[in-house]
């Protein structure tokens, strides 16, 4: 089963990369407000068919243990076909 994990800097966490991108977009003439830069991870999980609950639980653990740092990042799990 394939899943996509979206990882974002939490609200209130300073994101200098997002600020730099915002500045560059404005330089290009775009009227943009806040810009935040996160990360996207595609994961193939090996689970039994109909195992989407199991897959979600596994991916949540992956996020908590490695993919995201809960001090500064939030994450959102999207399972393919769900």
């Amino acid at each position: 089963m394939r899943a996509t994990v979206l990882i974002r800097p939490k609200q209130g966490i300073l994101d200098p990369q997002g600020e730099a991108v915002q500045g560059s977009l404005r330089k290009l003439g775009f009227a943009v407000g806040q810009v935040r830069v996160g990360r996207l991870v595609d994961v193939e999980v090996e689970v039994e068919a109909n195992g989407s609950d199991d897959a979600r639980a596994q991916i949540k653990r992956m996020c908590d243990e490695l993919l995201a740092n809960p001090l500064i990042e939030s994450y959102e799990i999207r399972l393919e076909g769900s």
Partner: peptide, 16 residues
């Protein structure tokens, strides 16, 4: 910090 043996986390420098 990432191993959570120390508190906090190191982020990109403010000035990038």
């Amino acid at each position: 910090c990432e191993a959570r043996l120390l508190p906090g986390v190191l982020r990109p420098n403010r000035q990038l």
